[in-house]
Design a protein around this nucleic acid. Structure first.
Length: 659
RNA sequence: GCCCGAGUAGCUCAGGGGUAGAGCGCAUCCUUGGUAAGGAUGAGGUCAUGGGUUCAAAUCCCAUCUUGGGCUCCA
């Protein structure tokens, strides 16, 4: 029994006990050990220093290589420890919170939450980072220690680390594990695994400083969070930083300003969007497209007010369940002596229900589909506001479908098809679908009968399966009033945006006592489905700006054609050509400045105008136009009619490129 | 809301206890130039707002407003 039977890949070896994972790997393949950061023994993650115990079974060892996702996680987690060690070193008396690796956040790779004696500022980040490099350069070992819970609590008590003690008491079993970085004063309560030595951390960077509540709860004390990232190699880090720069360049706030699309004005109110003519042109196209599609798909367009009696929001349950996002009630002026209170609408649903209820419904008229570009107002915390992405007033491309249980599956399917069609039109190709359901353990607090939930979930699943759409099922993530499908899209630089949602609602039909008369001549409760495709028109606009980096396809471009006369002898001809194009329904700008043609072209390029029409004496003489496409350059001279034909086709097909 | 930044010309930003700066944009004039920047001249700012320190504040301090990054993907 003092032997250990080990399997690494296809290689089996027998070693005399004791032996560490590292030694076992090394004897199989020396290079393999070099590339390994940790390992999995029979599936369990361990450090390379882990001592294998004699046992009858064969221990299968799978190294965690640095180029894998697991490897990256180890690197980042270890970098977080290194960060904490540096902070402790620089700022004695610092209290530590938690410091995990972040694997799914494109912005950051890890963080550590700390409370330092003096609050940190961004100027401290380079200092901390420098100290991290110094420590890493000393080739210090990450050392794991198994220790009883009580002793570990004692240890952290002595170090005056109350938050750590709290965590240990919450999470640890009888025995806990602690990690040290040798020759530093840093110890952490941590499961590991970690890199064997700081020399494995070659590419890391600190990125940002922010506030964070202990355990994410605003009732708890606020700590300072230091964000960083780390990669296996310097090249990867640099590539990532470059990609980050790219993303910054296409930030919708920056592009929105450069192209004069929209503004947010501090003097008028935070979180409210002003659409300038150029943004307005894009929005008009988006809406026209949507309205066409809604009409084709059997929706009725409705328009409803922005405020309603407060009582309505009591019936709907918004005051009860959505209170934190509601604006306070408002009233008529004092002198009118009318006490009725009103509220700005946070959602459109009650209004659509109002229309549904204006007369008795027969099963023969179902499904009823109401669509509205409904502007809603929500009280978002000022700190969460962000450009077009998070605002206080926005327009939903909202719709509500009232139908019978038999119709649900078809209706849900049609919504999903609709969403996919819309996204493809705007040039999105990759989607991620999430099905949020009640979940086994969460029967409490959810409205509606068990049967309703089953049926609803089945309808959602069937609709997805019929379309062979892969989806992720998320237990317990449903809204309290019903299950839902969320659709996320991936933009041109690989970021995911949650846009569409299709949600069942068991709550409102109940609260508003919705009915239809079925073929049994009895009243039944209709099923209600909420559905939004863009989600918010403002937000979708923001996503589009970033997706296209401001270079909108022809049908959406705020200025589709720039007319650039070479000399002012041609101005009149330029105006004529411009007018004809406007008559043909295109958005045209004529540049009559006394700039040279190169400068005019440059300006149009910067404004990302799809087509330029260059006009000189030659064109005037021959009654032609010289066309230049934004990406392809000079296309040569052609007749205006010819060009209009091409442009019409691009517009009508909503082509994504100007081929 | 809370933590840390930031707020100077239309935009991007430099400066910094003692006449307010640049580039781009804009205007005027010269130039009429053939596919990514022609030249000259000029206009534009209570340095976010309010208070304080000081002989003196855009600069330092405090408050307010606005804005940016964030606010448990678990030890």
């Amino acid at each position: 029994m003092s032997q250990i039977n080990v399997k690494v890949g296809e290689n089996s070896r027998i070693f005399p006990a004791p032996i560490s994972v590292a030694e076992a790997l090394k004897s199989v393949d020396r290079d393999l050990l070099k590339k390994s950061l940790a390992a999995k023994v029979n599936g369990e993650e361990v450090d390379l220093s882990f001592e294998l115990r004699p046992t009858d079974e064969v221990l299968s060892i799978e190294p965690i290589l640095q180029e894998t996702r697991d490897g990256l996680e180890v690197i980042r987690h270890s970098a977080a420890h290194l960060l904490a060690a540096a902070v402790l070193d620089l700022f004695p008396g610092t209290k530590l919170g938690v410091g995990p690796a972040l694997m799914d956040d494109p912005r950051y790779g890890y963080y550590y939450d700390v409370i330092t004696p003096e609050t940190l500022t961004e100027a401290d980040l380079p200092v901390i980072e420098k100290r991290m490099r110094q420590i890493a350069g000393k080739n210090l070992a990450y050392r794991r220690e198994e220790i009883s819970r009580d002793n570990l609590v004692k240890l952290f008590n002595e170090r005056d680390e109350p938050l750590k003690c709290e965590l240990i008491n919450e999470k640890a079993g009888e025995t806990a594990t602690a990690y040290h970085i040798d020759n530093t004063s840093f110890v952490d309560f941590c499961l590991g695994p970690h890199v064997p030595n700081t020399n494995k951390l070659k590419a890391f960077k600190l990125l940002a400083l922010s506030g964070a509540y202990w355990k994410g709860d605003a009732n708890n004390q606020q700590m300072q969070r230091i964000y960083g990232t780390a990669f296996a190699t310097q090249e990867e880090l640099e590539a990532w930083l470059k990609q980050r720069e790219e993303a910054e360049k296409r930030d919708h706030r920056r592009v929105g300003k450069e192209l004069d699309l929209f503004s947010i004005q501090e003097d008028y109110g935070q979180g409210m969007i002003f659409w300038h003519p150029k943004g307005g042109a894009i929005r008009t196209e988006m809406e026209n497209y949507l309205r066409d599609e809604l009409q084709r798909r059997g929706y009725g367009m409705v328009f409803t007010p922005h405020i309603a009696k407060r009582q309505l929001w009591q019936i709907s349950g918004h005051e009860e369940n959505y209170a934190e996002n509601l604006f306070e009630p408002t009233k008529l002026p004092e002198w009118m002596k009318e006490e009725t209170e009103f509220r700005l609408k946070p959602m459109n649903c009650p209004f659509h229900i109002g229309i549904y209820k204006t007369h008795p419904r027969s099963y023969r008229e179902l499904p009823v589909r109401y669509a509205e570009l409904g502007t809603v107002y929500r009280a978002e915390l000022s700190g969460t506001l962000h450009g077009l992405m998070r605002v206080r007033g926005f327009t939903q491309d909202d719709a509500h479908i009232f139908c019978t249980p038999e119709q649900v599956e078809t209706e849900v399917g049609a919504c999903v098809d609709f969403a996919y069609d819309v996204f493809k039109t705007f040039g999105f190709e990759t989607f991620k679908v999430e099905l949020s359901v009640r979940g086994e353990a969460h029967n409490k607090g959810f409205l509606g009968s068990h049967e309703d939930w089953e049926n609803a979930e089945n309808a959602l699943v069937k609709a997805l399966k019929a379309r062979e759409i892969e989806y992720e099922r998320i237990e317990g993530e449903a809204a309290f009033y019903g299950p839902k499908i969320d659709i996320k899209v991936e933009d041109s630089i690989g970021r995911l945006w949650q846009l569409s949602t299709v949600q069942f609602d068991f709550n409102l039909p109940e609260r508003f006592e919705l009915e239809y008369i079925a073929d049994d001549n009895k009243p039944h409760r209709p099923i209600m489905v909420h559905r939004a495709l863009f989600g918010s028109v403002e937000r979708f606009f923001g996503v589009l700006i970033e997706h296209y980096a401001g270079a909108f396809p022809f049908w959406l471009a705020p200025v589709q054609i720039a007319i650039l006369p070479i000399t002012d002898r041609i101005n009149e001809y330029a105006e004529t050509v411009g007018d004809e194009l406007r008559q043909a329904g295109f958005r045209v700008e004529t540049n009559l400045k006394s700039d040279k043609i190169g400068a005019k072209i440059r300006e149009a390029q910067i404004q990302k105008v799809p087509f330029m029409i260059v006009l000189g004496d030659k064109e005037l003489e021959e009654n032609k136009i010289a066309v230049r496409e934004k990406n392809k350059g000079d296309l040569g001279a052609m007749n205006l009619d010819e060009f209009i034909e091409t442009a019409r086709k691009l517009r009508e097909t909503r082509a994504l490129t100007n081929v």
